[in-house]
Amino acid sequence: MAAAANPVPWQMNLGKGATTVSREIWDLHMAALWVCVALGVIVFGAMFIAIFRFRRSKGAVAATWSHNTLLEVCWTIVPILILVGLALPATLLTRKLYNTSGAQMTVKVTGYQWLWRYDYISYEGKPVTGVKPIFSRLAWNSNAARQLDSGINPDSIVSRDGYHDYLLNVTHPLVIPAGVKVRFLITGGDVIHGWWVPDFAAKRDAIPGIMNDAWAKVDKPGIYRGQCYVLCGQDHSAMPVVVKVVPRDQFNAWLSAQEQPATLDRAARTAQVGPRKPAPAKG
């Protein structure tokens, strides 16, 4: 299974990602970028022309005017128009990002110091029963290499598909089906974390005691990687998000193999994630 669009050396731009939304965001990003480049060319261009043409050393004599109402009105209005042009698609896209309706699957994501827990809540309109939660920790080889003065070269951490996955691999990834709109319910178990897979453009803070949601519909099977993005303590850099997207039939088979008697389900659904008072720090 090919890795989708994980970061590569010398990468300079956003990846297009693997969902329609992520591609639309990429388009918006590029539009905004080009607008900025164009404005930059105009502003800096004008300034550098001034710098080269109106030098005293070349005998330039200063004009004395110091205002021009028409000009000032123009450069107030034109930026507003440009901004409106950017704001419109951005607004429509924001609504899309927020529209979790019609999801065929729901997964609850809980961030802990320092691992992710995934609970399957429902699939194809039915509650999922008896599937054990997935605990997703940093992969052991990365964990060994990341210790201070471990002597292990991070470059030597390579996954089966040849990707150098140092700090971007976990013990048990989240598994979801391809081509299905999945809704992620995101919350935190102790402090605030952040669940993000760049290729999905699915990103929300995992806040203890509050539930957020995001969604993704990934068409292409593959392994998608992201990281916890909200500072959550000493191992903030060591809680990657890895999602394995598999073909739908394969997922169905996997899921039914997992399913067990219904009793466990309630425990998963009601798993208490609310914070109690933060533990007093150890000296």
Partner: peptide, 24 residues
């Protein structure tokens, strides 16, 4: 919407009143 999730998954049984000392 947000409340439905927050309440349904984390704080079942809590209903908003004021004054309150919270779901716990």
């Amino acid at each position: 919407d947000k409340g439905a999730l927050t309440n349904g998954f984390i704080w079942q049984g809590f209903s908003a009143t004021w004054p309150t000392n919270g779901p716990d």
